[in-house]
């Protein structure tokens, strides 16, 4: 059953996955790279990884569904994570999340129709001193208020 479904995976991706063969314990990094390339984990890509790394497909799926980082569905261009850590919780984190949801007209875990934003659940972001905090892609925003949320969301391309 070689490469049954891998026709529309590009050559560059396949090459990257093959390089992982050299290293032990590469499944998670391979999935992380896949997600960087495609934005999520397409089934064909997971199947390909399973063949190349010689790991049962069921196990690839098991790993992909275990870790919070991995998505099996595509997501928006920007990912918003509103911290739900203790400090943020006591300093109004839930209100911030609600505000983001209200502005984007989606719930946590969903993607806007124009594929611009997704909201993802997250545990503590580790910037508790600045609670409440949210992270958009790699950038962290602290000491949030509803107004700041407005400004920040508006300023994003």
């Amino acid at each position: 059953m070689t490469n049954r479904n891998s026709n529309h995976l590009d050559i560059k991706f396949k090459k990257m996955m093959e390089d992982y063969k050299e290293h032990k314990g590469s499944l998670i990094p391979a999935l992380q790279t896949t997600q960087e390339v495609y934005g999520y984990l397409p089934k064909e890509a997971m199947e390909y990884i399973s063949q190349v790394l010689e790991i049962p497909f069921s196990e690839v799926f098991g790993v992909a569904t275990f870790y919070a980082q991995f998505r099996l569905q595509p997501r928006g261009k920007h990912v918003i994570k509103v911290c739900s850590g203790t400090a943020c919780h006591v300093r109004g984190g839930p209100h911030i999340l609600k505000e983001v949801e209200k502005q984007l007209h989606i719930k946590s875990g969903e993607t806007t129709n124009d594929n611009k934003f997704s909201i993802e659940p997250v545990a503590c972001l580790g910037a508790c001193g600045l609670a409440p905090v949210m992270m958009i892609d790699e950038e962290t925003f602290g000491r949030l208020t509803k107004e700041r949320v407005h400004q920040i969301l508006d300023s994003i391309e």
């Binding site: 069921s58 196990e59 098991g62 569904t65 275990f66």
Partner: peptide, 15 residues
Amino acid sequence: QYAYRGYDTKVTTAM
């Protein structure tokens, strides 16, 4: 294989 996590852990096939 086990899939998902915690309370939702479930024995599944791939996908």
